[in-house]
């Protein structure tokens, strides 16, 4: 029942992609997203596809894990594609009932699909190759310049770390509670919506109680160790930029030059705005 949810979908490894500094990796993924949305012709996407495939290959994450990230939004991608296909004005190709497919529509729909596809692929690769803890570490450091204008970067990162830390625990707990109640004959699958909602009570009450208890215990444990956030904290693992990161930045620089160069040389494909 809970098996299909893959939050914290980290796929451990020790490849170059895994070893990139999380700060660098987050920034590079941001650059990647900018590229995805600035590409204006199909040759550019071919190049991006090749680059992405190379990254996946280097990271040694099986391709099916990367594609799994697409599953929840397939419907969304298809609907977006269809909307753009039928609702774009331009030179008609054929008309059926009230729908008109235009040349621009085909081009634009293909572009939207490609953009969403690569957007998910790129961000999936980030979360697949970076442990949640490293990710929040990186985020904290990237956000720390904003502390000056009052952004509680450390506290935000701490909250995220704790939340991430407890997702698997709570899932395990939910699983255990569901099992214990099923063992007493609880039935979650039959009946109308009202009955099913009522059937959730024996799961939700123990779950909330244990979540509150855990939060309480954690707060006590942190206080016992004199935790205070923010100023002057040193960290166990200092993030350091290295050669790998330089390599990553160079690769992305080349990709960027190629993408914008192609945009300039070939001009936009049909339907792209």
């Amino acid at each position: 029942m809970l098996k299909d949810i893959t939050l914290g979908q980290y796929f451990p490894g020790n490849t170059v992609v895994h070893r990139l500094d999380p700060r660098a990796k987050i920034l590079l993924v941001l650059a990647y997203i900018v590229f995805v949305f600035s590409i204006k012709n199909f040759v550019g996407y071919a190049l991006l596809a090749a680059f992405t495939l190379a990254c996946i290959f280097i990271s040694q994450v099986p391709i099916r894990f990367v594609l799994k990230g697409l599953k929840p939004i397939v419907v969304f991608i298809v609907i977006t594609g269809l909307f753009n296909l039928f609702l774009t004005d331009g030179e008609p190709i054929f008309t059926w009932w009230i729908f008109t497919v235009t040349k621009e529509g085909v081009g634009f729909a293909a572009f939207m699909i490609l953009r969403l596809f690569f957007l998910i692929l790129g961000t999936s690769l980030l979360t697949l190759t970076t442990s949640p803890i490293a990710l929040t570490d990186g985020l904290e450091q990237l956000l720390s310049p904003f502390k000056k204008i009052g952004l509680p970067a450390h506290e935000l990162a701490m909250m995220m770390t704790i939340a991430l830390r407890f997702i698997p625990t709570l899932m395990e707990e939910t699983d255990k509670i569901i099992k214990a109640q099923s063992a007493r004959g609880a039935d979650f699958e039959s009946g109308n919506i009202l009955r099913r909602a009522k059937a959730m009570v024996p799961i939700l009450i123990p779950l909330f109680i244990s979540a509150f208890r855990r939060a309480d215990e954690l707060a006590t444990a942190m206080e016992c160790r004199c935790y205070r956030g923010g100023e002057n904290r040193t960290r166990l693992r200092e993030l350091k930029l290295g050669k790998v990161d330089l390599g990553g930045v160079l690769a992305f620089l080349l990709l960027g030059i190629a993408v914008f160069g192609l945009n300039f040389w070939l001009g936009p494909s049909v339907g792209v705005r």
Binding site: E173, K176, A180, Q181, R184, V201, P202, I209, S210
Partner: peptide
Amino acid sequence: GLVMQYPEYQLFEETVAKDIAFGPTN
């Protein structure tokens, strides 16, 4: 009938009697 390891967390009813009655009611 299975009593799981550390089964305390399965309790949810208002009273002890109602909680024990959960299985038989089902």
